[in-house]
Every structure is written in structure tokens, then in C-alpha cells.
Amino acid sequence: MRWIERWAGPMFRAVTRLEELCLATGILGIALLTIANVLVRTTLGTSLLFAEEVSRFLIVFVTFVGIGYATSKGRHIRMTALYDAMPLRARKVLMLLITASTSLLLFALTWLALRYTLGTVRELGAVSPVLQVPRYLVYLSAPFGFFLGGVQYLLAFLKNLSTSEVYLSFEKLDEYDDSPPKGI
């Protein structure tokens, strides 16, 4: 199982770096467009027509890319009442089941979203009102984000397969911080 560490480690870092780059660019773009629109509106009395539309596109993009990034940090919401009460071996088996099934689900959603986007949405020919951008290009954010999430869950599955500990993601160990909150 040494091959998992040698292959999956660089893959995890590359995918996470891509997600960070996409998220940083998207959020920075939203902020800059909002600031520019406010400045133009207060100085010239008119809005940048494209600012709201591009900001919406970026919000959709950031939302879907965030699926994989949250997975890479082990930050998805989890219902753990039963899981926490299980012995380590049972938690390990359950985590393998969770990461494998979630990865498969996200890859299936990737395929379905891609088929819907490149088939139905593209065939409808809908475009955005201001920039006339084909809607299917914006909708491609969904399969892209699902795919990144699927890769992250697959990497978490491989990590759990190759170690005795339980991992929430490729790098995030499933552990609790029992220290009291700061300031108490």
C-alpha cells in the first residue's frame, strides 16, 4: 500500500492547490467587481451592467468548487452520534464505506450533471441577459465541483485503506480537540 502514499499524496496536493486557486480567484473576483461597481455607481451614477451577472456566475462556481475543498479539509457537516460511540475498527469500516460511496455518488453526479449541461442546457441555447454568455458554460461549474469532490473522497478512501487510523480526508485525521475554548 506504499504506492497509495506515493501516488495519492502528490495528487491530493495538486487537486487541493487547484481548488484553492479557483476559490481565491472567484472570491477575489466577486470582491473586486462589487467594489468597482460601488465606486462607479457613486462617482458616475450608473452601475456596471455586467458586475452583478459575473458575480452570480462566480458565486455558483465557488459554491461547487467548495465541495471538494471542504472535503479536503474534513470540514463537511457530519452526523456522528452513532459513529462516535463505535469502537475504532467499526469506525474504520464505516469511514471506508462512507468515503467510497460518497466518491461514487459524486462521480455519478458528475456524469449526470455533465450530460444535462452539455445536452439539455446547451441545446436550449439559453444565454445570460447582459453578457450573452451561453448558460451551459456557467452550469459546467456543477460537474467540475462534483468531480473535484469525488476525487477528494476517493483520496480519503485510499488513505483509510492504507493506514490503521481513521481519516476524514487525505490529510485530516479523525480526532477530537479536548482542549477548552480559548478565553475560558
Score class of each variant (00 low, 15 high):
G119W: 04
L105P: 03
P87W: 00
A108Y: 02
M79D: 14
E123L: 13
Y116V: 06
T117A: 13
M86S: 02
P87K: 13
P87C: 08
G68L: 09
A100R: 05
M95T: 09
L88W: 00
L105K: 00
S103K: 05
M95F: 00
L88A: 15
L106G: 05
Y116A: 14
S103W: 00
T110S: 11
L106K: 01
L112S: 09
G74P: 12
T110M: 04
Y69D: 06
S101A: 11
D84F: 10
V121K: 00
R115P: 04
A70L: 08
T99H: 04
G68N: 10
G119K: 04
A81S: 13
S101C: 11
M95H: 03
A85M: 04
L82K: 08
G119D: 02
K92G: 15
R91N: 09
D84M: 06
Q132D: 07
L82R: 10
T120K: 03
L112F: 08
G119S: 07
P129S: 03
V93H: 06
Y83C: 06
K73Y: 08
M86R: 12
R75D: 12
M95D: 06
S101Y: 03
V127M: 00
L124I: 06
R122A: 15
T102E: 02
H76K: 09
A85G: 11
Y116R: 09
L109C: 09
F107H: 07
M79P: 09
D84G: 12
A108L: 02
T80H: 03
Y69S: 09
K73M: 14
T117S: 08
L88Q: 10
T71V: 14
R91W: 01
R122S: 12
P87T: 02
H76D: 10
P129V: 02
R122P: 12
A113S: 14
T80S: 12
M79A: 15
R89Y: 04
A85D: 13
V130F: 02
A81F: 11
A81K: 06
Y83F: 15
M79G: 11
Y83D: 05
S103F: 01
S103T: 01
L94G: 05
V121H: 01
A126H: 08
H76P: 13
K73R: 15
M79C: 13
L82T: 08
A81V: 14
R89K: 12
L109E: 01
S72G: 15
L105R: 00
Y83L: 08
P87E: 10
I98W: 02
V121P: 00
R122Y: 05
A70M: 07
I77W: 11
I98T: 13
T71Y: 05
T117W: 01
S72E: 11
Q132E: 08
L97Y: 00
M95I: 01
R91H: 07
L96M: 12
A113P: 07
F107Y: 02
L118Q: 08
G68K: 08
V130K: 00
L104W: 02
K73A: 13
L97H: 03
T99I: 01
R78I: 11
L94A: 15
A100G: 07
V130H: 01
L124M: 14
R122K: 13
A70V: 04
A70T: 14
P87H: 11
S128T: 15
W111E: 07
R78A: 15
R91F: 01
T120Y: 01
A70I: 03
